[in-house]
Amino acid sequence: MTTLLDVRDVSKRFTMGGLLSRKVVAAVQDASLSLDVETPEIFTIIGESGSGKTTLARMILGLELPTSGEISFRGKTVSQRVSRQERLDFMANVQPVFQNPFEAFNPLKRIDRYLEATAARFLKLSQRDDLDAAMDGALQKVGLSLVEVRGRYPHELSGGQLQRAAIARALIPNPPLLVADEPVSMVDASLRMSIVNLLKSLRDDFGVSVIYITHDLATAYYISNRLIIMQRGRIVEMGDARTVLDNPEHPYSRLLKASVLSTEDAGAGKLATDPGMVKLAGELVGKAGRLVDRADGRMVRVY
């Protein structure tokens, strides 16, 4: 077994605020996970807003250094500063789709310029036709086309178009690992399915592994192999996606599943959550506990 990605006991602390109000935020605490080269998979991260999902992703991408612990990609550590060339090689292998497409693009730069730069840099293309073909190919995969996008600035696209352009950009280098932070949060259900099906086919047909961060439990169930659920910096449950989601064990995981809105009572204005469940999950915040193995292969944090 060779590891593609190995995240070992990784923590990240931030200091927030000014001199008088300094506060340390433990954004990620002791996270461990690893992906195999031989079994490409869709590895999903779900969890509380502010629980450290993006921070974990940014550390995997080498954009943020862990406070402690180590991350390696194909045996090489990424949790250290490296040379420019090494960084470029790494980026050809691990591509990000950032959380908010409105922030991901420079508002003053045309979208096709971004795509073109990516194609030129990672695919070493320089001919106009080759560049256009690479861009159009990637855009077609997400239901767009170069004709629609060419010459346009980020603010000239709709939210969903922009989000899809960000995915297309990440696909251009044909990376073996894609780190996608809420890539379908702004598209309708049909498009959402076609994009997650694209991720699925990248895995099944091209051996690409995907770290898929999402708040959408339904697509997580539909495409993931394994998943982790995070609460306030800690992984509270980890395992086979369907095993966990069919029958979540940690109180926060249960609360999460119970909070999914349904259309059953459309029009009745139901927005209440069982206060008992909220309380149960809330009481565990800040407690360390430890992850233990269960017979069905999952790990759950117990206290």
């Binding site: 969890g47 509380e48 807003s49 959380q99 708040h215 609360l255 999460l256 809105l261 959550t273």
Partner: peptide, 21 residues
């Protein structure tokens, strides 16, 4: 409000929707 809750987990989303209402 245009897609105001896209980045929220379902637990917090419900709270926020409740507040707006």
């Amino acid at each position: 409000a245009d897609e105001p809750t896209t980045a929220l987990d379902v637990v917090v989303q419900k709270e926020v929707l409740g507040l707006i209402r």
